[in-house]
Simulated scan of single mutants.
Amino acid sequence: MKHKTVDISEKPLVLATALDGTFLGGTDEARRKYYDWINANRHAVGLIFVTGRDPGFVSELSRRKGVPKPDYVVGDVGTTIAFSDDRHILNPIAELEAEIVEKWDDSSARVQAALRSIPGLRLQGTAFRQRVSYDMDPDKFDRRAVDIIEDMGLDALISDNKFFDVLPKGVSKGPSLLRLLAHLGVKNDRVLVAGDTMNDHSMLTMGLPSVVVAGAEPALLEAVEKLDTVHVAKEEGVGGIAEATLRNNYFNKCAA
């Protein structure tokens, strides 16, 4: 069976949001209200999850009662670009991933071999595609790991002072989200980007309307403090997204 993608190019709001601490954060009441609003306005709201999580996690998440199903997903810290079908299964968009696959060049085994002796890193148990990810102990971590990865022609990304991701050179959430938005024909002024950690930095600093929710990683707050396009919310998690939705008049635009 062939599944169709959703045209979100003309929707008044396209929310591109991180998950943990952002779309999945905040109070139960805030999540319920905002999720209900999205579900009631899917004719006007496009939804893109931009996450470090893998496709399996996102598929299971979107099956939960009340959690809105994303139209598209930029997953695996930007190394997966996919659409979500009516069975909640993520389908990679080959033409958007081709450059990512080429840059990665099946590097998983050599990355793991190169970092095997580095203290403070524990390989995550998820199934990797074009990345390798570790849980990081900041007290034991040896920063030589960053140099090792850069010498391999790859990128190292440390976020929330506890995660260490190895990615293809120049690939992260921001560039992959831009590639997807251009592919879909979504105009910049229809987008609201939301995040809370340093692995969201690249998508929050692209010049798109953005929000950093309360309780965000201090390094991210410092990095965006002078950017006019980024609103630093007073509310945590999805409450901060709702705050930015109201601030940018998206509620009214979607009701028009």
Rank of each mutant, 00 (worst) to 15 (best):
D86S: 06
G56C: 01
T22P: 00
F83E: 00
A30C: 05
D76P: 00
D54M: 13
I38S: 00
G46V: 07
K103C: 05
D28K: 15
I89N: 01
N39M: 12
T22E: 05
V45R: 06
T27R: 08
N91C: 12
T80V: 09
G21L: 12
E97I: 04
N39D: 04
E97W: 02
F23R: 01
P55N: 05
A40I: 04
E95C: 12
H88T: 11
V45D: 01
F23S: 04
L47F: 10
L90C: 06
R32D: 12
L61M: 15
L19P: 04
I38D: 00
N41E: 02
P70L: 09
G26Y: 08
I100H: 03
F49L: 12
T22C: 15
V67Y: 08
R32H: 15
G25H: 04
H43M: 04
T79V: 02
D85W: 03
A40R: 14
G52Y: 10
V74K: 02
E97L: 02
V77F: 14
S84Q: 14
L24W: 07
T80G: 05
G46P: 13
K69Y: 02
T22M: 06
Y35A: 03
V58C: 09
R42V: 07
D76W: 14
T27M: 09
D76G: 12
H43V: 09
D71F: 11
V67S: 01
G52S: 10
G52K: 10
I81D: 05
W37T: 06
V73G: 00
R31A: 06
A30G: 10
T27K: 13
D20S: 12
S59T: 14
P68M: 09
I100N: 07
F49C: 09
L96P: 09
E102G: 00
R63L: 10
V77M: 08
Y34W: 14
R32C: 05
L19C: 11
L90V: 06
F49M: 11
N41S: 05
V77C: 12
D76H: 11
G46Q: 08
N41K: 08
T80R: 11
G78Q: 00
L96G: 07
V58K: 03
E102R: 14
I38L: 01
D20C: 07
L47S: 06
F83K: 00
V67W: 06
V101F: 03
D71I: 12
D54R: 09
R87K: 14
T27L: 06
D71A: 10
T79N: 02
V58Y: 07
S84V: 15
A82I: 02
L19R: 04
D85P: 05
L61W: 09
